[in-house]
């Protein structure tokens, strides 16, 4: 565990908390992609099955349980409790175009052909693109509420901090996982355009609005 990794995890946790608080306080999930949230729930479920088989640390176990619980909590708020506010007309990204290639790639490129390893690899590939329905929704409506922007910024920061964590670990000559790194870099690149808009607009008090 190094400082980048810890800040990355905390940033990830912060993103999830921002999202839950936004939905809870405004009693609305307008502007949030239920499809991305659904994909994140699949990601955590597929990846954290190792909770049943391996113990890494108390920190690791607690965080996994928190991520699982909050992802299902978010789905509950979006699809049950505040379903009436869910903006499904703008949430139209075809997620089978992400899930099926992630399954295929996990079957082809993995480190070990076992069920648990393939599920882990699938979760890594799927996570790298799971935010696309959300970014697609923002581009479709042409804008995002500030709170949604903060959520996306925290989520993107988590990925960027994980890259710093790998660079740090590389200097310590630790063993690194190539699959996680390549997918992580792809995932971070997806946020670059958003980062630019966030830094140039949202932080200056303007609404995130895409150029027409």
């Amino acid at each position: 565990m190094n400082i980048f990794r810890l800040l990355g995890d905390l940033s990830h946790l912060l993103a999830i908390i921002i999202l839950l608080l936004k939905i809870w306080n405004s009693r609305s999930c307008a502007g949030i992609s239920g499809r991305s949230q659904f994909l994140f729930a699949i990601v955590f479920t597929a990846r954290y099955l190792d909770l049943f088989f391996t113990f890494i640390s108390l920190y690791n176990t607690v965080m996994k349980i928190v991520f699982l619980a909050t992802s299902y909590g978010t789905l509950y708020l979006m699809y049950i409790k505040f379903k009436a506010t869910y903006d499904s007309n703008h949430d139209t990204f075809r997620i089978e175009f992400l899930i099926l290639p992630a399954i295929a790639l996990a079957l082809l490129i993995n480190e070990e052909f076992t069920v648990i390893e393939i599920l882990w690899t699938f979760s890594i590939y799927l996570e790298s693109v799971a935010i696309l329905p959300q970014l697609f929704m923002v581009s479709k409506t042409g804008e995002a509420e500030s709170i949604t922007s903060h959520y996306l910024f925290a989520l993107g920061s988590y990925r960027a901090l994980y890259i710093l964590n790998w660079i740090y670990r590389w200097f310590l000559t630790e063993k690194l996982n190539a699959i996680a790194i390549v997918a992580g870099i792809v995932q971070t690149i997806l946020y670059c355009d958003f980062f630019y808009l966030y830094l140039t607009k949202v932080l200056k008090g303007k609404k995130l609005q895409l150029p027409a």
Partner: peptide, 10 residues
């Protein structure tokens, strides 16, 4: 497998 890195990341 000992050659694989431990999956300690979230």
């Amino acid at each position: 497998d000992d050659d694989l890195p431990k999956k300690d990341e979230l």
